[in-house]
Design a protein around this nucleic acid. Structure first.
Lengths: 127, 127
DNA sequence: GGTGTATTTAACTATCAGGTTATGTAACCT
DNA sequence: AGGTTACATAACCTGATAGTTAAATACACC
């Protein structure tokens, strides 16, 4: 089995599974109800649920014939933690030209040395 | 081809690719240097880069024989946006019992209304 | 105890992902 | 021009994913 964060991201890579999680955010429900919106057989949904369960993103209960499914969001926390490391990169809001300009500017200013470290002085300038 | 967010998550689901992105956060570099830490052939790394590129997570330049690779973090923004929708779920810091207690409390308070039409009476009873 | 409902498991198929080796291509370096 | 360096592409293999239909299981209800 893969590491936790890999299986979390893998689970999230499928639109059906993301839709299932979105539904579960409204509250625990049955497999049949989860399956209803999809043009897909029940066993297919059952498999998606298994993937989500293996990733720790859902838990399953037992209640009469029903096996209620419930969201477990903890793994998402870890995923967001990983992504946050990159926040500064997208917050620099750069398109390619900006990036290029910033880079050569930085290079000229510092005599190069750490040209890839980005200096991004006026990153907020877009438009 | 899949939607943007699916291919972003799919790209992030592989540890090699996450390591590549982590390296790129330190600055743009060559394919060979990216490949160095891995026990894997160059073509394998090349494929990973292709996946990252298709997901919009890297850009590639051309500089003599080198084809420098550079991080593009914008798609991560969207991914984190999706995840943020679930933040409240993991911040509620709940184990299953907590979740159960919160749910019945809410149900009692609101006269049931959004109990997922299932009443989930003793859902917290695992074992 | 048989029937209906909810869901899983099994068996199968097709496609995709990640790896390999071998070969091709483009730019640099005498 | 010929060799080396840096990389990509092609062809191939293997295992995992995503779906299917059909059968099995579990419980509720009469």
């Amino acid at each position: 089995m893969a590491d936790q964060i890999s299986s979390t991201f893998a689970a999230l890579a499928d639109p059906t599974r993301r839709a299932i999680l979105a539904r579960l955010a409204l509250g625990e429900t049955s497999v049949t109800e989860l399956a209803a919106p999809f043009e897909m057989s029940m066993p297919a949904v059952s498999k998606h649920l298994r993937v989500l369960e293996n990733a720790g993103l859902v838990e399953r209960g037992r209640q009469a014939q029903y096996r209620p499914v419930r969201l477990r969001a903890e793994p998402l926390k870890q995923a967001v933690g990983w992504l946050e490391e990159y926040r500064r990169f997208w917050e620099e809001s750069f398109d390619r030209l900006d990036a290029y300009l910033q880079r050569i500017q930085a290079e000229q200013a510092t005599g190069n040395k750490n040209a890839t470290k980005k200096e991004t002085k006026d990153a907020g300038k877009r438009k």
